Simulated scan of single mutants.
Amino acid sequence: MFRDAVRGFVKAQIAPHFERWEQAGMVDRSYWQAGGEAGLLCPQIPEGYGGAGGDFKYNCVVVEEIAYAGYAGPMTDYSVHSDVCAGYILNAGTEAQKEKWLPRMVSGETVCAIAMTEPGTGSDLQGIKTRAVRDGDVYRIDGAKTFISNGQHCDLVIVVCRTSDAPGAKGMSLILVETDRPGFRRGRKLAKLGLLSSDTSEMSFEDVEVPVANLMGAEGTGFATLMTELPQERLIIAYQSMAAAQRAFDITVDYTRQRKAFGQAIADFQNTRYKLADLKADLLVGWAFVDQCLEKHVRHELSALDASTAKMWCSEMHGRVVDACLQLHGGYGFMREYEICRLYADARIMRIYGGTTEIMRELISRNL
């Protein structure tokens, strides 16, 4: 029933506006209220905080359906808000923080972003330079962030920053920053290869003052919290890749059956059949593994190894699938008016955000 509701939402609230959003480089703000009213935002949040009290399978259904419909940008916006940010507040926030922000995130009144990456640091989170200096009952935050999803719409940002001079991970903390505070600045909306309708932005903090009560957890525990929450983020990215790869495959099967060359359908050539057979096998194996990982996750048994493996293998497989599918479209695949072209562009980020393939290999190698 929930999956059917999501499909109905996609047809009514995304499909009519998608091309305009792609051209504008961001969704309408009303998209957030619509998602809240339909129950698509943060379905895993307990009823006590305004949520539906579902498990993470509901989050995966939202991602699967929006991604499979071919709308990677709007899917990414919701996923960062619901599957990433909400998890940090639910699991690492204080009771006051949860009571204040989670109901607003469920309704779509508040849009949340997380600010990790900085202009000089990518995968190396321990190299961040954004500082939060305590001054009595407040922190004063200075620094710059980039590649922030929901950067233009967000009302609340989870900021990864340094609260001490301790080296490496020891001095890192997470602090909630409301975007209406003096000194907070939204930077430019970045032009990207794909995910055009998902706004990705720069942001800066210049002597931004927030109360000490905005600290999530204890000082210096930020990196540990990140490591605890990242497996869920990587699992949901694996689901994004699976659904988008399945979409690319399905539309390609239809195309090869209709397109003719040398007097027969492209699907009738042995090369095409064998290539599609390989892709089908990859998809079947991928779905089986991510579903196993999801079952572990809802039992709180998902390991960093499993999550890293799912993220790496599914995103790499996703890249192979869309590349092969575009090839089977021939020259038309390179045209933006054909959906496979957009799916190809949208796929490229999957091997980068949430931890690059190289980082995933490093994490997996530690378990050999």
Rank of each mutant, 00 (worst) to 15 (best):
S198E: 15
K170H: 06
G355K: 02
L193M: 12
V253T: 03
L174F: 11
L326A: 08
R104Y: 07
Q126R: 15
V298G: 00
R186G: 05
D137Q: 10
Y68I: 12
M26G: 04
R162W: 07
R3V: 13
A261P: 00
L276E: 00
R234L: 04
S173T: 07
P103T: 09
D28N: 11
V80I: 14
A5F: 01
E229C: 05
A347V: 11
G51P: 08
L328N: 01
V285N: 07
Q44L: 06
D142S: 13
M312A: 12
D199M: 02
S204G: 15
I175K: 12
D268L: 14
Y49A: 01
G194I: 06
G143L: 10
R3G: 02
V159I: 09
A191Y: 10
L279M: 12
F147M: 13
L279H: 03
T94E: 04
G48D: 09
A347C: 08
G35M: 10
G168W: 12
A324T: 04
G93W: 01
S365W: 13
L294A: 03
L294H: 00
M227L: 07
D4L: 06
D282F: 11
G171N: 06
S204E: 08
S241C: 15
R257E: 07
K275Y: 04
Y139V: 09
R181K: 08
K280P: 03
E233D: 09
H297F: 11
K280E: 15
H300W: 07
M105D: 00
Q44R: 03
T130P: 06
G73T: 09
A304Q: 05
D250E: 08
Q264T: 14
G93F: 04
V321R: 06
V321E: 00
C314R: 07
A213Y: 01
E229G: 01
A265L: 04
K280A: 14
V208D: 12
N271Q: 13
I364A: 08
W287Y: 12
L102S: 03
A218E: 14
N214Q: 09
D199R: 10
D124R: 01
W313C: 13
H17A: 07
T252M: 08
Y68P: 04
C42K: 00
R20H: 09
G143D: 13
L215T: 06
Q258E: 13
I141T: 03
M242L: 11
V61N: 00
R366Q: 14
Q126E: 14
A244S: 15
L294T: 02
E206M: 10
E339H: 04
I349A: 11
V298P: 07
D346R: 00
T200R: 14
Q232V: 10
T146C: 12
I89R: 00
